[in-house]
Design a protein around this nucleic acid. Structure first.
Length: 451
RNA sequence: GCGAAAGUAGCUCAGUGGUAGAGCUCCACCUUGCCAAGGUGGAUGUCGCGGGUUCAAGUCCCGUCUUUCGCUCCA
């Protein structure tokens, strides 16, 4: 009978909103659901695509020293041997038979008593947990055909380093950007889409001369943080976390994470990593494939294996961050009493629906006029037309999915071709000629500042 | 994967072995001249899934899947 009466956390509310309004659903829900996998609904996929497009534009279009790539998810198993994933992603684990606690075999003394319950000789034999998804390529399932779904996108870039250098007329220093899915057999999935088995990464590997990484590493840290400011994220919710010696991966020279202060109960969690990876990856691939993955400087004729500065952001995590950052419940005092307005303060560039067109009433040709206006705006913006229910109710529905602009057509529109433009954050409205709508919305988007 | 708790309409929940419920949402029509909750009508469920006990199971038992919290891990 003891019901789960724990109060709903901020994250619970966001999960609920995502489901209710069609942002994010659990995978395979009609079959009871699949742990750690999520489906993006009509609004969710648009939000995700908007973030993805902003990142891609920022990294490739705005930096002429970065080129794009889309590598295959399936790669030769040798890639993962070279990268160290096969060795390092298989953590041998032991369980205590008494208290059922689980430990990494390499992190505890197997001869000592269990650190949790103190039982002696209670550990199971170490067992491997490979965090990489494994499958077989080809019809035969022999060990020769064993293959993995990539656990990170970075290796797809490293193994194409020579291809890009040989075909693109790029010169070091330059970067390769890639967006794509990665897969990890996480033991525990947690916090909604924050950690899932299938996730999307937005990565850029910047190749530079050894030593120059000292310059590029701070440069990219600054660039990446500036990106979030452009996205309209509240900057007091972002911070840097530098990896201490113990956190640092064995190959990394230095590593910073951008952390975001997610809503309760998550708080500060990693959003993106900016890591200095030295020549580790290219050196490893040189060894394993037998071909030097090096670079010949056409000017100085120096030959070297470049150092790498990596920016690696989770697209999936960015979606959750955008939702958390935007989510707000405003208490409004109206004539009818107190009213709570749920609103997503997305930057207009992120909002899945940018402009809603609403007829004030359905009759007297108002609806037809509004529909026509909506059609004319489609070329410029993602639009939504809604004629159902009271006008205030329709505004609130748009607030809840983060639509920044609502355009209302009324009787005056028939007379003088003006419409009301209503702003989501301030709830203010201005009366403008229809002909100025596109320019006004674009201008407002450009100057958008999160309250 | 281990331990604990939970799963009933799109959402929040009531229903303690005897015909499946409420409020909100949603849809249609009316009303509505700019910020939710006005009127009338309507739709929605293999009570997570599978098995068992019983004349009878949403309710009791077992398994399973999912969710939440801890352990472990992490872009």
């Amino acid at each position: 009978m003891a019901k789960n009466k724990k109060k709903q956390t901020e994250l619970d509310k966001i999960v609920s909103l995502c489901r209710r309004r069609g942002f994010i659903f659990q995978s395979s829900e009609i079959y009871g659901g699949l742990n750690g996998a999520y489906d993006y609904g009509p609004l969710g996929v648009q939000l995700k695509n908007n973030i993805r497009d902003l990142w891609w534009k920022e990294m490739t279009q705005m930096h002429d020293d970065i080129v794009g790539l889309d590598a295959s998810i399936l790669m030769a198993s040798k890639v993962w041997e070279a990268s160290g994933h096969i060795k390092n992603f298989s953590d041998p684990m032991v369980d205590c038979k008494e208290c059922k606690s689980r430990f990494r075999a390499d992190q505890i003394d197997l001869e000592a008593p269990c650190p949790v319950c103190g039982s002696k000789d209670s550990f199971t034999e170490p067992r491997n947990f490979n965090l990489m998804f494994q499958t077989h390529i080809g019809a035969n399932s022999g060990s020769a055909s064993e293959i993995y779904l990539r656990p990170e996108t970075a290796q797809g870039i490293y193994v194409n380093f020579r291809n890009v250098v040989d075909s693109s007329r790029v010169q070091v220093p330059f970067g390769i950007a890639q967006i794509g899915k990665s897969f990890r057999n996480e033991i525990t999935t947690k916090n909604f889409i924050f950690r899932s088995c299938e996730f999307e990464q937005m990565e850029m590997q910047f190749f530079c001369k050894p030593g120059d990484d000292e310059k590029w590493f701070p440069y990219w840290r600054e660039q990446r943080m500036a990106f979030y400011e452009k996205m309209g994220i509240r900057m007091d919710h972002l911070r840097w976390h530098q990896h201490g010696p113990k956190e640092l991966a064995f190959y990394a020279k230095d590593a910073y994470d951008i952390e975001y202060n997610f809503v309760e109960p998550m708080q500060w969690q990693e959003l993106e990593g900016v890591h200095s990876r030295t020549d580790y990856d290219l050196t490893q691939h040189s060894k394993f494939c037998g071909k030097q993955q090096d670079y010949l400087d056409p000017v100085t004729h120096e030959k070297y294996i470049p150092y790498v500065v990596e920016t690696s952001a989770g697209l999936t995590r960015n979606v959750l961050m955008a939702l958390c950052d935007a989510y707000d419940e405003e208490v409004l005092t109206t004539e009818k009493g107190e009213d709570v307005r749920t609103v997503l303060h997305f930057h207009p560039n992120l909002a899945p629906v940018k402009v809603a067109v609403l007829p004030l009433v359905k009759k007297d040709g108002i609806a037809e006029m509004a529909k026509e206006l909506e059609l004319s705006l489609r070329e410029e913006f993602s639009t939504f037309y809604d004629q159902g229910g009271a006008i205030g109710r329709r505004y609130r529905r748009m607030d809840e999915i983060g639509t920044p602009y609502c355009v209302t057509v009324d009787y005056d529109t028939k007379e003088d071709n003006t419409v009301t433009l209503r702003f989501r954050d301030s709830m203010e409205q201005v009366r403008i000629p229809m002909s100025e709508l596109v320019a006004t919305i674009k201008e407002s988007t450009k100057n958008y500042k999160r309250k």
